[in-house]
Write a protein that binds this DNA or RNA. Structure first.
Lengths: 227, 227
DNA sequence: GTCTATAAATCGATAGAC
DNA sequence: GTCTATCGATTTATAGAC
């Protein structure tokens, strides 16, 4: 291995280590993450970190992109095995929830309150849409296989408004299914955030997974996914 | 008016003013709110604020309780006029959404990521459950009037697990309806947060209110609310 | 690429005069 | 109940030696 390659590898490892420590700091500092505190934990000078991340926001962006990709990877793995569309829909939801339970602060970073003063760059929107697109893919395949109940439209004007969005976003889905996919995705995020952010701590902690599945089945049913 | 009463009134007004300025600061600082910055804006010494709020967290608690009560008041007003249960359910949801759009940072404070290091005291849980209880009340009345579709239980063991919770929480509702109420509430929070926190900025901003109503109608349908 | 040193701020909370 | 002053910390970011 050439010296240049070695340097590159060492640099990549250092970058990873900084992000790992930064992720730990999310737990205590939340979104107001401190570069210096990370550097302190790593036993290095704060100024050295700036050779890896140009600013605090750049580090934050890296963490955000990683989080989106991690949860989407988990969802992809869960949805991969052959199964009915409904089972794959539910597997996706469970995988997202379980990743969130294991990484609550990363979840908060991407689906919680926006970080004050932070503006997400364009690089984040690709990873950010992966889970939604996975749900859309599942629903699209079900649709193609005739496994989706086609019901009445709620409003024709609303559907026609949705049509151009559907085209650019999930071209294989009719607008109604696009709306249901997005609604289901919102429902997924809402259920996970509610559990994680501690709405109703005392009330439903008997069988959280069961209640979550109940909700996500409702979302699938709304989307017309019956099998 | 006695001197004591005057003092009490002046103190109440000062307290309100501090909270008003603090609410403004939520916009820029988010949850990491600075007592000193609030004091600076008010033209007073930071130490003076401590005569009104014993700590930064106490001020935060006051803001949180106010926010819960404000959104619940708006929901109560919207649900008050006589109408079908479905219409009152939807009116509640729209009122919550509209309050959130007008007060995004207060919404983030109560339904967004937990504030790092902040532990909510008991005083917050009463106000925090008001909107949920309102939805439950609406569904309960519909149930009593025979306007709720009673469908198959998803799982008997899950329902029996939910029973004791239902008893202490919404005694006039069968467990299934309790689950649907909570699910609907989570869906409401999820839809509002998704819109507010900027998931999918580009995709559904054509008719956000319409799409929101579509989602909340779905939640009501899941709950068996047909009219 | 890592270090020391530094600039120019910020913060929560308290002490004590008035 | 408001002020000044202070303690003891924190932060982002940069400059410059090595």
């Amino acid at each position: 291995m050439s010296a240049a390659n070695l340097r590159a590898r060492v640099r990549a490892e250092m970058t990873e280590e900084i992000k790992t420590v930064a992720r730990r700091h999310l737990a205590t500092d939340g979104a107001n993450l401190s570069l210096r505190a990370v550097a302190r934990d790593l036993g290095m000078a704060s100024s050295a970190v700036y050779r890896y991340f140009a600013s605090r926001d750049d580090l934050l962006t890296a963490l955000i992109i990683d989080a989106y990709n991690e949860v989407a990877d988990a969802a992809d793995r869960a949805a991969a095995p052959p199964a009915t569309p409904l089972d794959r829909w539910l597997a996706t939801c469970h995988a997202v929830r379980e990743w969130a339970l294991e990484n609550p602060h990363q979840w908060a970073l991407i689906y919680g309150s926006p970080v004050p003063g932070y503006q997400a760059p364009q690089d984040t929107i690709g990873p950010a849409t992966r889970v939604l697109l996975l749900l859309g893919k599942t629903l699209g395949e079900a649709y193609r296989d005739g496994l989706v109940d086609v019901r009445e439209p709620i409003g024709a004007s609303f559907e026609s408004e949705l049509a151009p969005i559907a085209e650019s976003f999930m071209p294989d889905l009719p607008p109604r299914a696009v709306a249901d996919t997005i609604a289901g995705f919102f429902q997924l995020c809402g259920a996970v955030s509610a559990e994680l952010f501690g709405q109703l701590n005392k009330s439903v902690d008997e069988d959280r997974r069961g209640f979550f599945e109940y909700q996500m089945t409702g979302a699938a049913t709304t989307a017309g996914l019956t099998a």
